[in-house]
Design a protein around this nucleic acid. Structure first.
Lengths: 157, 157
DNA sequence: CTAAGATAGACAACGTGGTTGTCGAAACAG
DNA sequence: CTGTTTCGACAACCACGTTGTCTATCTTAG
């Protein structure tokens, strides 16, 4: 079997990172569903983050998510369908439509922040705060800070 | 802003894990492309892993990947198109078709293992071997060991 | 041995999220 | 006023997942 100098196979590392990520996101959405947001998908959370509190144009959302305008438009359509975002005409520019979060969208975002904090606290309890902080620091040094464009990349060609 | 007891916001943790995972997978596929496998996608690697060296039936692949038989069938079609897998009739069971990796598929798998080891070695150099091992151990304690079924989960409804 | 049931895999239709190309309307620059 | 750029929508397409249906084959019970 292929392994590194200290006997650990390299392929486990990405699996562990993915498992950690998945565990957090799964628990987040399980809890969100319990708190009245059963329809939010991981991708929606990223998109709402990209829209932001003040709202954005569809083109800005596309740029932040690292996808095409059309893809962003479809995602916004979906969020609008679910009642998490809305499009309003931009009074200053007849071409633009401002995308804004609805109160429901905002609620899901604030709940997500609280849940993430609770999940991190659980990890801190299991590992010890120092170990968790070191894990975060270590990841920060080897991986560039993640942008919102990380969502689409997996499936994309 | 919401933050945990020691001042770190909880939402950064998943982002860091994802960034780490993404960095590894991106570099793997960049290197694979350089080594003659430009068409392999992350999902294909997982699928080939699910097929395994001895080969499997499509149903087994589906079970391992945690997707429907039809989805597995489509992925196998894609791998066959790209020349990484092939279907052969099972002599012992007229219903089954054995899915096997081609030499090309095997080559991409062995190269992947080597590249992953090299990437882990780079992380070990950047962080120190002990810190990296601790990171892995920490993840192992908080996240259940990742199966192959982690791929489809993100996009899925 | 045959009839009934379970299983493998293919096909079709559809949903979601991505892509590119085209195009009209509005803003901006000359 | 005219040309160019930009925004957002529409259409067509691809990748990958889903469920439902169907045939062929193996398995098991009577």
């Amino acid at each position: 079997m292929s392994a590194t100098a200290d006997g650990r196979p390299g392929f486990e590392l990405p699996l562990l990172l993915l498992a950690g990520f998945r565990a957090l996101i799964d628990e987040l959405h399980a809890e969100l569903a319990r708190q009245g947001h059963p329809d939010v998908r991981p991708a929606h959370g990223f998109a709402m983050q990209a829209i932001g509190l003040p709202g954005s144009s569809a083109t800005e959302v596309a740029r932040r998510l690292g996808v095409s305008k059309q893809a962003a438009g479809k995602t916004i359509d979906r969020l609008a369908e679910l009642g998490y975002a809305e499009r309003v005409d931009d009074p200053a520019d007849g071409r633009r439509k401002l995308v804004r979060l609805t109160p429901r969208g905002l609620d899901s975002l604030t709940r997500s922040a609280v849940i993430f904090d609770a999940l991190r606290a659980r990890w801190a309890q299991a590992l010890g705060p120092a170990r968790l902080s070191d894990l975060e620091d270590a990841l920060r040094t080897v991986a560039p800070p993640a942008g919102l464009d990380t969502v689409s990349w997996f499936s994309g060609s």
